[in-house]
């Protein structure tokens, strides 16, 4: 039975907040992907999907400006990411949040302190306000009672949720999530999917999510692109549910039907 499209998906008229144009990534002469172009609209959950090693996380790191593109450009809210430096880059970084695959929480800080790091760095809020905002963010992801725990004392799913709380600390309009469901049990994974949908609907936050978890893609994605290792680039773009039903591309069909390729 086909899954229903997530509630509250923005229409085609919604403002474009991320533009990727003819992007290519190369390391040591090896091309990871090339000719990648797409747009992300305000308020949508945009999924970057594909098999292992196709360059999903590399694309995400290009989008947030960690890697300079070999070709092409990435614009976030009209700003050319790779060309920004100094105060302009800092201003852009304040408007995006990133959740890393491992959570990337600072091991020597409690969860509340982890969430407080961007608040301390980017705002002049008094300590009491920072502590309350950190608690509110942790409460939002269901970790209100774990605020004083260290990352070593929590599970993988909690670390991912804490990573989301830290990414949301400054109420950024765009959140980038790298493999939010990887390595999680189905119940925790479904809980995380629900949280992402809820945040997108309630906060109007734009999500760019890298994942290869089929269930998650269908549960949260408004639109998606699919990367392929062999093609070294994009092989599909659109509504993931429609792609599953109608795509003629054998790799896309195999991916959505969980079939082994010959």
């Amino acid at each position: 039975m086909p899954e229903e499209a997530p509630e509250g998906a923005p229409g085609a008229e919604a403002e474009v907040v991320v533009t990727v144009t003819d992007l290519a990534a190369r390391f040591g002469g090896r091309t990871i992907f090339q000719h990648v172009s797409f747009e992300v609209r305000r308020g949508e959950v945009f999924v970057i999907l594909g098999g292992s090693g196709c360059g999903k996380s590399t694309l995400l790191k290009h989008m947030i400006g960690l890697y300079p593109p070999a070709e092409g450009r990435v614009e976030i809210m009209g700003e050319h990411v790779a060309a920004l430096a100094g105060a302009a880059r800092r201003a852009l970084l304040r408007r995006i949040g990133v959740m890393w695959q491992s959570g990337a929480l600072f091991g020597s800080l409690t969860l509340a302190e982890n969430v407080g790091v961007p608040l301390e760095e980017h705002t002049a809020l008094p300590a009491e306000a920072r502590a309350l905002v950190a608690r509110a963010k942790l409460g939002l992801v269901g970790l209100g009672d774990a605020a004083e725990r260290l990352p070593a004392e929590i599970s993988g799913g909690m670390a991912k949720r804490a990573g989301i709380a830290r990414a949301m600390a400054l109420d950024p309009p765009i959140l980038f999530l790298d493999e939010p469901s990887a390595g999680l049990d189905p119940i925790t994974s479904a809980g995380l999917d629900r949280l992402i949908r809820q945040l997108a609907r309630e906060l109007g936050t734009t999500f760019v999510v890298v994942t290869h978890e089929l269930q998650s893609i269908l549960a949260i994605g408004d639109r998606c692109i699919m990367l392929d290792k062999e093609a070294k680039g994009m092989i599909a773009e659109g509504d993931p549910r429609q792609l599953r039903e109608t795509s003629e591309n054998p790799v896309v069909r195999a991916f959505f039907r969980r079939e082994a390729m010959e």
Binding site: R135, A136, G139, L140, G142, G144, A146, E148
Partner: peptide, 14 residues
Amino acid sequence: RTRRALATPSAPPP
């Protein structure tokens, strides 16, 4: 939403 998030009981201090 913030009221609900802050209403989560905190763990007792160690």
